[in-house]
Simulated scan of single mutants.
Amino acid sequence: MCKMTEVSEMTKHRYIMTLLVSITLGGVGPVGCDRPEPPPAQKAGATDEVAAAPDADAQTPRVVTIGGTITEIAFALGAGEQIVAADKSSVYPEEVKKIAVLDLFRNIAAEPIIAQDPTLILATDQTNPKDALARVKGAGVDVVEISEDPGVDQARQRIRDIADVLGRAQQADALIAKMDQDLEAASQKVSACNKPARTLFVYARGPNTVFVAGRDTGARALVELAGGEPVHGDFSDFKPMSAEAIVAANPDAILMTDGGLRSLGGLEGLQRVKGLGETAAVKNKRVITREDLALLGFGPRLGQVVLELTDDLCLDAAPSDE
């Protein structure tokens, strides 16, 4: 749900996942705009008063979204015309490029947010510093923080929480129905696959910043949903993995974000990364990429991405490696 939790293993993992997405997306979006003073903060779950906002003769809502997945969901719910600004991690859909840009969610300032004269702030619960949100709330603006936990159930709940605040329950039902339809189609394909690809999820931000997904990560969950057989070290979260361990694991497929592969210089650059370049995945050019937010955001495109990946991570029709 959308309330603050104690610092747990899930919370630490969620922070790492969100940080990885933000690092990946931080340099992709437009340059942030500087603006004046800020308002206060609340949380999704305390939606009683906020949910009533998009009603009757009240002023036209002016919404600021903070967090790429939050922004994507709000647009997918059809609230794009109400969104006046979003943070730098908000790179999808295309329409987001037409609105004001704020600092990245992990380093926000209250003044530029307040300068947008917002009536509502929808923010990832990974937004920092918290005192900036508190200042925005103190200025009389409703601030609702949304959980960014990865997972299918969490993605559904995230859509519902944002829809409740925006008064768009019907649109949420349609979005979730489409996601579930895609996930069911993916599940059927997975069941029919006789040779799942042993898959390593690699996060990269240049040749000197290469991590692999361990246990208990959203990336691993994504691989499993798409029918791949996860390959990982004996660790949790995202961590470096030695060249020797990668060679020994020898994955059939490598899954990465588009931005991650670009940061290495494409496939040729990946071939030069010690360990990875020696795997069957790279030798056979079975390196699968998707747009960063689609892959790691666990937003409304989750079902679509999983369905696409089921074909990529099944080797039934793949040519022999021999």
Rank of each mutant, 00 (worst) to 15 (best):
G32I: 12
G67Y: 02
S90Q: 03
D34E: 11
V63H: 10
G29W: 12
A46T: 11
E37N: 09
P30K: 06
V84G: 08
G26M: 14
P40S: 04
D55R: 07
A76G: 03
A86Y: 00
G80S: 05
E81I: 03
P30N: 08
D57A: 08
A86G: 03
Q59M: 08
V64K: 07
V28Y: 06
P38Q: 14
E72S: 02
G26N: 09
L77A: 11
E81V: 06
E94S: 04
G29P: 03
P39K: 15
I70S: 02
Q82P: 02
G80L: 03
G29N: 06
D57E: 12
V31P: 07
V50S: 13
P93Q: 06
T69L: 15
V50Q: 01
P54L: 05
V31G: 07
C33Y: 01
D48V: 07
A44P: 11
K43M: 15
E94Y: 04
I23M: 15
E94V: 08
L77Y: 02
V28R: 06
A86W: 00
A46Y: 11
G45A: 04
R35H: 13
A51Q: 13
Y92G: 03
P39S: 15
A85N: 08
I70V: 15
D57S: 14
T71G: 01
D34P: 00
T24W: 04
T71K: 00
Q82I: 02
A46S: 13
F75R: 01
A56S: 08
V91G: 02
E49M: 12
I73G: 01
D55M: 04
A44W: 05
D87Y: 02
P36D: 12
G67E: 04
A74W: 00
R62L: 03
K88N: 10
P61R: 00
L25H: 09
A46P: 03
I73R: 00
A44I: 09
A41V: 13
Q59W: 09
